[in-house]
């Protein structure tokens, strides 16, 4: 084995990661060639140097931090928000906490109402009857229709979803139990 070949393999030789035949051939060469032997020595010393590095230690709370993040990750989103909210209001007296909770609920309702009313402004229904929403319906074309009350003959438009409702044409809708006819002529943009 010549010097070039030995030098290309000597790093793996240091690790003992060569087939037996090559290991023996390199050992033979190193005993006869001082240049390659010194190459081998320097790589061996380098490996030993890194092997002697002291482990770096993390802060003592790293495992706890990781487990805490895992807890947060396992928690459903609404629980996360609640626990964040609870944490923020914890230092306050109970009356203020109650008021804050009430305010949060009211705000949430307001957001829902505002969302609804803005949509109502677009639709401006002249004949909205029922406010109960309990069943899903499909129109004849198969499009999804807002939740409505089964058994009521006139249906409220839910202020959320569907363009088919904007059609000025009368349309009929079928559920599993009943057939409804909905007058859409009263609705306009």
């Amino acid at each position: 084995m010549n010097c070039n070949k030995v030098r290309s393999l000597v790093s793996a030789y240091v690790d003992g990661e060569l087939p037996g035949v090559e290991m023996l051939a390199i050992r033979q060469h190193l005993s006869e060639c001082s240049n390659c032997a010194s190459e081998y020595e320097s790589l061996l010393n380098l490996k030993r140097l890194f092997g002697r590095l002291q482990p770096k230690h993390p802060r003592s709370d790293l495992a706890t931090k990781i487990c805490h993040r895992l807890d947060e990750m396992s928690q459903p989103a609404h629980d996360r928000w609640l626990s964040i909210f609870a944490k923020y209001i914890q230092p306050f007296p109970s009356r203020i906490r109650l008021a804050a909770a009430a305010l949060a609920v009211l705000s949430a309702l307001l957001v829902i109402r505002v969302g609804g009313s803005s949509y109502s402004n677009i639709l401006s229904p002249t004949s909205v009857i029922s406010t109960v929403a309990s069943a899903r319906m499909q129109n004849q074309a198969g499009a999804f229709v807002p939740q409505t009350a089964l058994g009521t003959s006139v249906i409220e438009l839910h202020p959320a979803r569907d363009n088919p409702w904007l059609s000025p044409m009368p349309a009929s809708f079928v559920t599993q139990r009943d057939t409804f006819t909905v007058r859409t002529a009263g609705f306009y943009r």
Binding site: P55, H57, A63, C67, L70
Partner: peptide, 15 residues
Amino acid sequence: FFDELVQKYHKQAYN
């Protein structure tokens, strides 16, 4: 059980 794995391996991983 995963928490135990965290305890066991976090130092090595950190290094």
